[in-house]
């Protein structure tokens, strides 16, 4: 693609989001870098507390600056967002960059009609009249598959079902043809049949409008279905990245192996127990000095001296690969011989 030569649409470098608290500084995101390309979907996977949502809220400048310390760089095309004034960010939100939240019932105000809320970004950013906004809202509602949009536009959120509310959220996000859509667990609260509808819809709309999408989720199945590229996060850092095929088909980080082996499947052997990851994620108040996954890692003893996983922090290669001290050969053979058989 020719747009690829002009560089990524969104580029995040060494992002740190720290929250000072009475107990110390919570390092929710601690040195995160990633790129998002036009027309492509980046899946960000991780468990609760891995920093995936916090990092993306920082992109939109949604953290309260009084309680947050943000450093690093966030480049949206040629703009630097970490130092951008609030007014600039306001111009971006809902316009060039839009966000879809997990819970559409809390993200929509119960006091206003669905139509008025969806039309708001269009009126604000495009200076459209009430009438124009209403017309576009009806078009958009039809586009995301809401039946009788001309009538439903005057409904309140409580009159919509869960799936319809999420569709309304997507309609709102798409009102100004955003170049980047950040979807934070957009289907987690939905039933599987509705989830399938929403994921299909997002993919169709991406084809049509060519937006870049960041899909934040804990569900590897969702990532597999929609992503071009995948970033795996653990304890505020990226531990593995690559194309979806690489990360899910030939994972190289012990944490990714753990996620895949602990996931129940719809096919294959059920006689065997799942293989969970031992222990729990580290405290973000005092993350381990070395590899954050070391306390739970089953393979750290394979790493040859003088490297010590507990004290030496492994770097994540640019482009693709895993932040792990195992050699490339070890990663390949351990996955092929010990991990892959579990996934059958």
């Amino acid at each position: 693609m020719s747009t690829q030569e002009s560089g990524p649409f969104l580029s995040v470098r060494d992002l740190r989001v720290h929250f000072p608290t009475d107990d110390g500084v919570v390092k929710a995101v601690d040195g995160l870098s990633f790129d998002v390309w036009r027309g492509k979907t980046l899946g960000i996977v991780g468990e609760s507390g891995s920093g995936k949502s916090v990092a993306n809220q920082a992109v939109l400048g949604l953290h309260n600056p009084k309680h947050t310390r943000i450093s690093g760089e966030i480049h949206l095309e040629d703009q630097e967002l970490t130092t951008a004034p609030e007014r600039r960010l306001e111009q971006l939100r809902g316009n060039k960059v839009a966000m879809i939240f997990q819970d559409p019932l809390t993200a929509l105000s119960p006091y206003y009609t669905v139509g008025r809320q969806i039309g708001e970004p269009f009126r604000k950013h495009r200076g459209a009249s009430r009438k124009e906004a209403r017309e576009r809202t009806i078009d958009m509602l039809a586009r995301v598959g809401i039946p009788h949009p001309a009538r439903r536009v005057d409904d309140y959120p409580h009159q919509f079902s869960g799936g319809m509310r999420q569709r309304a959220m997507i309609a709102m996000a798409l009102m100004c043809d955003p170049d980047l859509l950040i979807a934070d667990e957009p289907t987690t609260a939905l039933d599987v049949t509705v989830q399938a509808q929403i994921l299909d819809l997002l993919m169709e709309l991406q084809q049509e409008f060519g937006s870049a999408i960041i899909m934040i989720t804990h569900d590897l199945g969702v990532v597999s279905r929609v992503s071009d590229d995948v970033l795996v996060m653990y304890a505020g850092r990226a531990v593995e990245r690559g194309t979806a095929r690489e990360v899910l088909g030939r994972p190289r980080h012990p944490y990714t192996w753990g996620l895949l082996s602990s996931m129940p499947r719809l096919r294959g052997d059920v006689g065997r127990d799942l293989v969970p990851i031992a222990g729990t994620p580290p405290s973000l108040l005092a993350p381990p000095p070395g590899c954050p996954f070391e306390p739970r890692c089953a393979f750290s003893d394979h790493v040859a001296d003088p490297v010590d996983c507990a004290t030496d922090r492994p770097a994540l290669p640019e482009e693709r690969g895993a932040a792990c001290h195992l050699t490339a050969e070890q990663k390949r053979t351990i996955f092929a011989e010990r991990i892959r058989p579990r996934l059958r």
Partner: peptide
């Protein structure tokens, strides 16, 4: 229901 569950494509 079964077909709606997204599965991991390990390639």
């Amino acid at each position: 229901l079964l077909s709606a569950v997204p599965e991991v494509d390990t390639g």
